[in-house]
Design a protein around this nucleic acid. Structure first.
Lengths: 336, 336
DNA sequence: CTGTTAGCGCGTTCAA
DNA sequence: TTGAACGCGCTAACAG
């Protein structure tokens, strides 16, 4: 069960371990006699030698791993991001080490600590909330930290994000163009910057476009189907003279919850109420009605975050990245 | 950017590094004078000392990481599994290191090699295909290997799987009970044991129940929406006197593709054709029609795989685990 | 209770 | 072209 080391190979060939080290290192292999090199390579193969990256890392100081902190791996939103991260990291033979915060601050802190103990070469946080700022910035003095997916406003940390305000504005404009004048939004947890940005931008756009926003007092505790359902029910119980003609859900999961709640209330989408989501999750094009939504470039965010990490590790100056949303019109919205 | 070490703390307090090591190790802390211990702890905190898990691992031989090999992180099927793995591994403060094979054998081999180089304490393969058997068994002589999600028939490696034959049989029985007599299945790639098991069991059940199986010659290259669509189109072009009245798709994604293809062909689900999937992916209850499917306990598979790894690392004898499927009846199937 | 010594596997000096 | 020695940060074993 224990693996052969450089010493084993050296003994096998009858040379010094350093020679083996050199022979097996592509950069230094030329410094070694071609014949001994052949012999070393063959012995290594025969013995099943594999470099001990841990030992190597101990002195090089690099582990070729980066920490990825996600909020909830059960949310289909994160899969494409992690997919993108692994894809871009592959070129550097870097592997992600993954952990979940469940959106609990204390867990976030513990995980960050743990990752620094592991000496990950960098950390990508996909789980950032407003209250995590201090510990992230502290961590950044020890290892590079990249904030991705969820923005951290007012921080100097390198960020790979998306223009949530633009997305929410697109949603408002789309509804306005369709003739809607009474609208509502289902807000995600506001300590996640994406949602606070969406909330503010949507309200601002409503005001500017002259639409009446029917405010739902409550905010989703977590951005899930269940919470989307709950908020929608609250909205319908508001007892307004008339319900809104269109609803902007802060993400697609909440939109799915809204869809269910509306159905239960006997309201049809889009005939009675138009519904627009956010993220363009996989499968949103096959639900019925196919969901009009704001495309969130998850995979690209992941790719860019991975690439940014590689640049940082190469000593380059990181540049923040902000990707743009786009409107995906499907069947859940229509003219009033 | 460089972190303080035991030596730094020792120098600060004026003791020997070993004393610091002891003071900071919960198991050995009692062997040290309470006062010096206090002093050490305070100095460690003040300096921001964190244990160097890499260095520790170098001599303990454990890295507290396990490798997780997935086929495709873009498939919503895998996220809940990884979710389960991280959840069960958390108790041991073990973190998963993740990589993707894209279902390419060579990449699989490379990744396995890489993980062994990193001295992961164990490997969980979620990406196993028939041809990967040899390299997996070779790897298992170096580090514990657990095969999860995709079975590896005839192997002695510990496995955490699911009874695919039972699931496919449930599907066939359900269709039979509804009165269907002409059915078809959309087969996933057969070098993935789940799909070959489902294919065989479904055919066998058809025969036993006296249902006619209309065979689609082709098999999906990958189990995706696009391939599900392609196979369905092939099925419809078969020019049979009559198309089947029910279709069993080997997974939910393929079922979604089938749904689209049927719609395009002017056939309605379930009025004209009943459709049943496999996995019960998130959102399958909100698509329209809500998909009848076979529940696949993804999260439980992940949890069990993680727990199995922990047991193995604790020196216990691994026991194979086989979880049972269940039928989830929704709106995409109905009596003929 | 604490200091000393050695070594985990490797890369990187410096010599020869 | 190769060998010898050292150290990365830590823990285990042995002294004292």
């Amino acid at each position: 069960m224990s693996m052969p080391t450089l010493d084993d190979v050296a003994r096998e060939v009858g040379v010094h371990p350093s020679t083996v080290s050199r022979a097996l290192n592509p950069n230094r292999a030329q410094l070694v006699n071609p014949e001994t090199r052949k012999a070393v390579e063959e012995a290594a193969r025969r013995l099943g030698y594999r470099p001990h990256m841990i030992a190597r890392g101990l002195q090089s100081g690099r582990t070729a791993t980066i920490g990825v902190i996600a909020a909830d791996l059960g949310n289909p939103f994160v899969t494409p991001i992690i997919h993108g991260i692994t894809a871009s990291l592959e070129v550097g033979e870097i592997m992600p080490v993954i952990a979940e915060t469940q959106d609990e601050h204390e867990r976030f802190a513990r995980i960050l600590d743990h990752m620094l103990s592991r000496r990950v070469d960098a950390v990508i946080s996909l789980a950032t909330r407003a209250g995590d700022r201090q510990i992230l910035e502290d961590a950044a003095r020890i290892a590079p930290v990249v904030v991705a997916a969820r923005p951290l406003p007012g921080s100097d940390l390198p960020q790979v994000v998306h223009d949530d305000a633009a997305g929410a504005t697109l949603a408002a404009e789309h509804l306005h163009e369709l003739g809607h004048r009474r609208v509502a939004q289902l807000r995600g947890p506001l300590d996640v910057a994406n949602f606070s940005h969406r909330a503010e931008a949507f309200s601002a756009a409503c005001e500017q476009l002259g639409m009446t926003e029917i405010e739902v007092a409550e905010v989703a505790a977590v951005p899930t189907i269940a919470e989307g359902r709950r908020l929608t029910e609250a909205l319908l119980e508001l007892g307004e003279e008339q319900p809104p003609t269109a609803i902007f859900a802060h993400n697609d999961l909440m939109a799915m919850g809204a869809l269910a709640a509306l159905r239960d209330a006997g309201l049809r989408v889009p005939e009675d109420v138009s519904l627009i989501g956010y993220n363009d999750l996989p499968l949103m094009d096959v639900v019925t009605p196919a969901l009009t939504t704001i495309y969130y470039p998850s995979r690209e965010i992941g790719l860019a975050a991975g690439e940014l990490v590689i640049e940082i590790l190469a000593g380059e100056e990181p540049e923040n990245i902000c990707l743009q949303p786009s409107l995906v019109v499907r069947d859940s919205t229509r003219p009033i």
